[in-house]
């Protein structure tokens, strides 16, 4: 039991370190570079397309050739994969809201968390408001808080089941 816990923590630490290193080395941590990548009609900087390309180049074959064949992870935990294929309102509206925020500041969750140690008040401000946004989203999904335009969430029970 104790070794499984240790393995989970060790793998968390190791993969977190690889992830953060990838964020810094690839340049994803630089919002100026991110905006330059999104600016396809202007002075486009295509280099960040290679970040997703590189990530998929490693993860995709590894998933389909190694992970997919397994019933469980090496720790014995189940593979935490959703089989949900419904394209619903929260997925679409969430992706749009995320896209607006990403385009406004050039930050997404991975790079800002990696940048915490830099101590920039801009990064810290973004993170505080991101945490507020996540918490509010959780309350909305549970039917407790309303959102502008759409109001309170309907069919709460249905979706809680799906997301579980």
């Amino acid at each position: 039991m104790i070794t499984v816990k240790l393995l989970r923590v060790f793998i968390g630490l190791l993969s977190g370190t690889f992830f953060g290193a990838g964020m810094v080395i690839s340049g994803m941590v630089d919002p100026v570079k991110v905006i330059g990548f999104l600016n396809i009609t202007g002075n486009w900087d295509p280099s960040l397309a290679f970040v997703m390309g590189g990530a998929l180049m490693v993860f995709t074959p590894f998933y389909h050739l190694v992970i997919k064949k397994r019933n469980h992870a090496i720790s014995g935990d189940k593979l935490n994969l959703t089989t949900d294929t419904t394209i619903d309102g929260p997925l679409i509206s969430g992706a749009i809201l995320f896209g607006i925020g990403w385009g406004l500041a050039g930050f997404c969750p991975g790079p800002v968390i990696t940048s915490v140690g830099g101590g920039s008040y801009i990064v810290l401000t973004f993170i505080v408001f991101m945490l507020v946004g996540i918490s509010y989203g959780t309350q909305y999904l549970a039917g407790r808080f309303p959102l502008p335009i759409v109001g309170y969430r309907k069919n709460v029970g249905l979706v809680t089941k799906q997301n579980k």
Binding site: L7, R8, I11, G12, L14, S15, G16, F18, F19, A21, G22, M23, V24, I25, S26, G27, M28, S47, L48, A49, F50, V51, M52, G53, G54, A55, L56, M57, V58, F59, T60, F62, Y63, V66, I67, R70, H72, A73, I74, S75, D77, K78, L79, N80, L81, C108, P109, G110, I113
Partner: peptide, 26 residues
């Protein structure tokens, strides 16, 4: 650098899922 950094992200996601079954979604 972008390509190599991206490959590290992919490696991270693969390790986390293979060993612990978790999704590397920040």
């Amino acid at each position: 650098q972008s390509l190599f950094g991206g490959m590290l992200l992919g490696l991270s996601a693969a390790l986390l899922m293979l060993f612990s079954g978790k999704v590397a979604g920040i």
